[in-house]
Design a protein around this nucleic acid. Structure first.
Length: 439
RNA sequence: GCCCUGGUAGUAUAGUCCGGUCUAGUAUAGGCGGCUGUCGCCCGCCCGACCCGGGUUCAAAUCCCGGCCAGGGCGCCA
């Protein structure tokens, strides 16, 4: 088939911007054929762009032979341009249709698409991910990422307004320093390097100059995890603030969650309708459960966890039933948290770390950090880590490390919360896990 | 890494327990034809599949073994 060039055509409107008031006006639309309903004498072409759909109506006897022959060959997903006249009508749900004067076909598509784009026969998640570029054209799936975009925009604005400076720390790091999460090794010239699991140490060093710093970016964990809420590559929203404590950054975090939910609720009405979901704007402050309270709650449900033990996933699920929305868990046993979390002055068995939970899922975690070099070295040793491998980071503590605190939000988990999706792969454009490296 | 479940047209499923009735059903997508107001359009006709390898058996989509792949759960995970 001979394809058309875009030539001097420029888009005048997105589909949603064509309204009954434009009756009689000529418009130029670009997009894709989503559906064709041919009734013989009249043909309806549902055209889609990123904002929605619009009906192009082709009455066989009233359009030019050029338009008719172009519309004869159209198939689903052909990329097209339509120049035509807006017609106000009672016969479409949106009260308008477009009668084409000229149709240009920019590209074609295969006849049997790997997934049903009409949504009548939904595909399974692995089939969808294998055809992700096409899958994302479905309005419901696009809606997920428009919501994610809106949330990130709101979060950035919120942090900018409060004087946070956006930073970019390295993704390639020299050694497996933090313990805990496993790292992906990479070849770095003649040396061995790793993909960063977090910006933790860098953002702490940056509070000495920036005071308030944040970063939004991908990080990598080589865990064996095979769950609906873990990825090998995920996006972290990290902040760190000088002259702050856990309580101050918890307040910042709950206000941020309130704000992000509010903005998504206000700006993403259409997307939420497509997802058949309502975002609840949470009231602040959020509940603050002590680790001990959590053990008590679980005990009442018949789950006994000895003090100091980690809380296993099934127990978190139970906890999520008791507390279905946002809540903090505070006063964790010191040994259950990372080495850089500050133990409480009045009781070093307990630390100033916290988790922000959404039902049973950990959305964010943070805390007051250790600002004393001696204490940090002591904690490193207690965790079985070698201060020598942290020597560059420890030097920063010789230059006036202020008291500081911070947190990190998992963006994909936040998106799950905002879209009611149960599998993190659905809210990740191209998810990476132990079993998936493509596309 | 461990456990459970599954793998049937492009997609989604029925059939598998209890082997023969399966020439493998249905929906949707796709092809051809018809239809001037559809919006999950409608009507008629058509195309298209048992994950791979081995075994048991007169006979395997169905039972057994191995492999690969997927989903869920657990553990791991700041």
């Amino acid at each position: 088939m001979k394809l058309d060039s875009i030539g001097d055509w420029r888009r005048t409107h997105y589909s949603v911007d064509v309204k009954p008031e434009l009756d009689g006006q000529e418009v130029t639309l670009f997009g894709w054929v989503q559906e064709i309903r041919d009734l013989g004498g009249i043909r309806f072409i549902i055209m889609q762009d990123r904002e929605g759909t619009i009906q192009v109506t082709v009455p066989r006897k009233k359009v030019s032979s050029e338009v008719l022959s172009k519309s004869d060959v159209l198939q689903k997903r052909y990329s097209i341009g339509v120049k035509g006249v807006v017609k106000k009508t009672e016969m479409t749900p949106r009260g308008i249709e477009v009668i084409p004067k000229e149709i240009r076909i920019f590209s074609t598509a295969v006849l049997r698409l790997p997934i049903d784009i009409t949504g009548k026969t939904p595909a399974n998640i692995d089939v969808r991910l294998d055809a992700r570029a096409l899958d994302l054209c479905q309005e419901e799936n696009l809606a997920v990422f428009k919501i994610q975009h809106t949330a990130v925009e709101a979060i950035r604005n919120f942090l900018f307004e409060r004087g946070f400076i956006e930073a970019h720390t390295p993704r390639i790091i020299a050694s497996a320093t933090e313990g805990g999460a496993a790292l992906f090794p990479v070849e770095y010239f003649e040396k061995k390097a790793f993909l960063a699991q977090s910006p933790q140490l860098y953002k702490e060093e940056l509070v000495m100059s920036f005071e308030k710093v944040f970063e939004v970016g991908p990080f990598f964990r080589a865990e064996e995890s095979h769950t609906r809420r873990h990825l090998s590559e995920f996006v972290s929203i990290d902040i760190e603030q000088a002259f702050a404590t856990a309580e101050s950054v918890m307040q910042l975090l709950e206000q941020l969650m309130h704000f992000a939910c509010k903005v998504v609720d206000e700006k993403c009405h259409n997307e939420l309708v497509k997802l058949k979901y309502n975002v609840k704007v949470p009231k602040v402050p959020f509940k603050r459960l002590k680790y001990d309270d959590v053990l008590q709650d679980l005990k009442r449900e018949g789950i006994e966890i000895p003090w100091g033990e980690d809380i296993p996933t099934p127990a978190f699920r139970t906890l999520g039933e008791i507390h279905p929305h946002f809540y903090f868990i505070v006063d964790w046993p010191t040994h259950s948290k990372a080495f850089y979390i500050k133990p409480r002055d009045d009781n070093p068995e307990i630390c100033e770390g916290f988790d922000l939970m959404w039902s049973w899922i950990e959305l964010a975690s943070g805390g007051t950090r250790i600002a004393s070099k001696e204490l940090l070295i002591k904690r490193l040793k207690e965790k079985g880590l070698h201060p020598e491998s942290f020597k560059h980071h420890l030097k920063a503590f010789d230059y006036g490390m202020p008291p500081h605190a911070g947190w990190a939000i998992g963006l994909e988990r936040l998106t799950m919360m905002l879209t009611d999706k149960k599998n993190i792969r659905e809210v990740t454009l191209y998810p990476r896990d132990k079993f998936r490296l493509t596309p």
